[in-house]
Design a protein around this nucleic acid. Structure first.
Lengths: 142, 142
DNA sequence: GGGCTTATTGATAATGATTGTCAAAAGCGA
DNA sequence: TCGCTTTTGACAATCATTATCAATAAGCCC
């Protein structure tokens, strides 16, 4: 087992993530840090975020555009309601869904089920862009 | 409006997708096609898949590794139970989840809610790799 | 069939996020 | 402080995907 060392870089990433409202990409967190004086390396930000995520201190998900987004979070498994405009994320309870996912999986003979459940929308502050005329909302996949 | 022309390439992609058990990436569909003689271009496969997806003739989702996966499918909105090993996908009904997602979204003042709900696991043919010893299952994100 | 117009193709370059490399720098226990 | 090891960071390397653009081929009218 490897000894984990404490570096100011790791702290910088952790606290930058803490001050963040919603989910952020590694790239934008890196530029924010650079913007505030720190000259931390990009690879380091990626590493730190990856570590935080695997330690359970951060939560990660993929944006519809395929970027990996992170958010500070210490609690266990849960899901999010994410604003497509400002990135605001609300943690939501989804016990029903948990149960449903497990049931569906075993019903079909699947084991070691994991699930991806996230809801995207526009929060009340970010009113939906031109309501009806939005014939092609962001990330319409189907 | 633009006129849509019928090319053998488009057909090739469509039928290659049809003969596919589960979800495939554009890349692997391209190599499959090349492997069977056709010398269709990669960009064309991407374009064809994108078109199929936006016409509703194909279904798309992101793998945990960040690739876009496609599958032939003509029905409306639904979700999948996907085998992490062989890619087999079972379409699952999730009316409860639909309702839940809408309710949660409006409960928090979110509008134009879309959701991502997919369950990954190992199908009965692909027994989970060394059951218990799997301390680090594929795509463990948290 | 013969042209004509224009959508489509495909080889390749470009992009953009993420990861690998490796020498230099910095933790931390002694 | 010393020395051993983990980390860092600049940069190169990957990898999926998209843009470019000249060459090709569909659909159509004759």
């Amino acid at each position: 087992m490897v000894m984990q060392r404490n570096t100011w870089q790791r702290e910088a990433v952790r606290s930058a993530l803490d001050t963040q409202m919603g989910f952020v990409s590694a790239q934008s967190l890196h530029s924010k840090l650079r913007g505030s004086g720190s000259h931390i390396g990009l690879a380091t930000v990626y590493r730190a975020l990856g570590d935080l995520a695997s330690e359970g201190q951060a939560d990660s998900l993929q944006s519809p555009e395929g970027e990996n987004l992170y958010r500070a979070c210490s609690r266990g498994h849960h899901h999010h309601l994410i604003c497509r405009s400002c990135g605001l994320a609300v943690e939501i309870e989804a016990d029903d869904v948990e149960v449903w996912a497990k049931r569906v999986a075993s019903l079909h003979g699947f084991t070691q089920a994991e699930h991806v459940v996230d809801v995207f929308g526009y929060c009340s502050s970010c009113v939906a862009p031109s309501a009806e005329s939005a014939a092609n909302p962001v990330s319409a996949r189907k």
